[in-house]
Design a protein around this nucleic acid. Structure first.
Length: 422
RNA sequence: GGCAGAUUGCCCGAGCGGCCAAUGGGAGCGGACUGUAAAUCCGUCGGCGUAGCCUUCGAAGGUUCGAAUCCUUCAUCUGCCA
């Protein structure tokens, strides 16, 4: 495996390095051979999300450049919980964490190569912490962590007012121990993670230096925010999940397609493998003809393909074209629409016509209550076959069916649902 | 342990016996403009059979014709004193 000498420059150009230890030293090591690096994922949910995807993609970049990945799933740290600003976490049961560890592991595997000279390795920190005695932990690890320094860390400082348990306070020791252990057993010399992990990353670097006298590296990727500074990757349904059961690939695609203009370049750099030249060309194209949204389309296609595959992405693009095409829905035909609508959300199956538009909107899941459905109609936000509905008591008839079997409901600009009559 | 104050809808925050489903801001949602973008403007923002009714203001009781508003107890949080 040959090393790509431009790796670090590329990462910097993509804006992936928000904080780092000595970059010159890292650059030197990266040039000398395949560096063993690690990135960790705590099982805090049954699926990974957009923030994790950033780390996965970054891990892929390093592997493609010839370096050797160790992917850590936090079977131990997931039992403890990283301190966060919103307050003390509720502990998840051991069974839950075990289950999530498995799911997360399976989710990550397709992204990396487990063959070849720089094959990836999956590790679980429960393997080296489960048998660790409290006394050994306090003597060998705890001794290297001055509490006064720990208290000065931003995440801890912010929690001192509202309160923080000893459990969460100790989290950094566990993550630092991970680095030390991977350094000892696998020669791992680089860790990266989100910028909120910076304290934990440096904790590990320092622990390795103190107990082994070795210099190892770390860098933190930036927090991706919206143009207004708020956190990215949140939808009305919560996080942007990678699991197709938790977020339909259609919704996933739509999320990226709707990226704000001023963020597209940044997102392309962070989440796609397009080259610098390709991305700059897209940005130029966008500046020229923004209404085409070439950047968003490419971004959505690239990321959805990465996560859900090319076939699924092609289906979604066809579905989006049918629903948002602006043309006559009847021209698309029931067959195409059926596929498109099923992609967006489960179809509503009814035995026969007769329900009002209000009931249909509720039953199809586009609104939560009849009151909301009536409001939608009153606001002009309800559509039947892409035509605005004015009357909440409207009962769609046989004449409204496309190819005698399908109704297309729309709420607002972007939410579609299909009704199929058996 | 003692004293004082807090607890309101997704979040922040007014209300302090009837005019309160509850002012205002934010988020969300819809419309207009555009490009399935941003900004802006307008509207909306507990549920139901939209007449009115039902369930909401930490929890449970109580006073009253009537309570988010008063009383009692409990829970949680904050400040002051030990």
């Amino acid at each position: 495996m040959s090393l790509d000498p431009t790796l670090l420059d590329d990462l910097e150009w993509r804006g992936l390095i928000a904080h780092s230890t000595d970059l010159d030293a890292l650059r030197e090591d990266l040039g000398e051979g395949s560096v063993h690096y690690y990135v960790g994922f705590d099982p805090t949910a049954p699926s990974l999300h957009m923030g994790n995807l950033l780390q996965i993609v970054t891990a892929m970049r390093l592997q493609r450049a010839g370096h050797t990945p160790y992917v850590l799933v936090g079977g131990a740290t997931g039992l403890i919980g990283d301190p966060r600003d919103s307050g003390e976490r509720t502990l998840n049961s051991a069974e839950t964490v075990r289950d999530w560890v498995e799911r997360v592991r399976r989710q990550i595997e397709p992204f990396l190569s487990f063959d070849g000279a720089n094959a990836a390795t999956m590790v679980n920190n429960l393997d080296w912490t489960a048998g660790l005695s409290t006394i050994d932990f306090l003597r060998d690890i705890g001794k290297h962590f001055p509490v006064n320094r720990m208290l000065a860390r931003d995440t801890v400082k912010r929690r001192l007012e509202s309160g923080i348990s000893y459990t969460e306070f100790s989290y950094i020791l566990l993550q630092s121990l991970d680095y030390l252990n991977l350094f000892r057993t696998h020669g791992v010399r680089l860790q990266f993670g989100g910028s909120d992990q910076w304290g934990n990353l440096t904790g590990g670097v320092e622990l390795v230096r103190r107990s082994e006298g070795a210099t190892v590296h770390a860098f933190a990727t930036p927090l991706v925010t919206k143009a207004d500074g708020t956190k990215y990757g949140k939808t009305e349904g919560g996080a942007l999940w990678l699991d197709p059961e938790m977020m339909s690939p259609y919704a996933f695609y739509q999320f990226w397609l709707n990226a704000e203009d001023e963020k597209v370049g940044e997102l392309l750099r962070i989440f796609t493998f397009l080259t610098r030249a390709e991305i700059e060309a897209l940005e130029a194209e966008h500046a020229e003809r923004p209404f085409l949204r070439a950047g968003q389309r490419t971004l959505a296609r690239e990321v959805t393909t990465l996560v859900h595959g090319a076939d699924e992405t092609a289906r979604i693009e066809a579905a989006s074209a049918a629903l948002f095409g602006g043309g006559d829905l009847r021209a698309a035909g029931a067959r195409t629409l059926d596929a498109a609508l099923s992609t967006a959300r489960p179809m509503l199956e009814v035995e026969s016509l007769g329900a009002t538009i209000v009931d249909l909107l509720v039953d199809a899941g586009l609104v939560k209550s009849k009151g909301e459905a009536r409001r939608a109609v009153a606001e002009g936000g309800a559509y039947l076959n892409n035509e605005r509905v004015e009357d909440p008591d409207l009962v769609p008839g046989p004449g409204d069916l496309i190819d005698d079997q399908l109704l297309v409901l729309r709420r607002g600009k972007k939410s579609f649902a299909g009704v199929r009559v058996r």
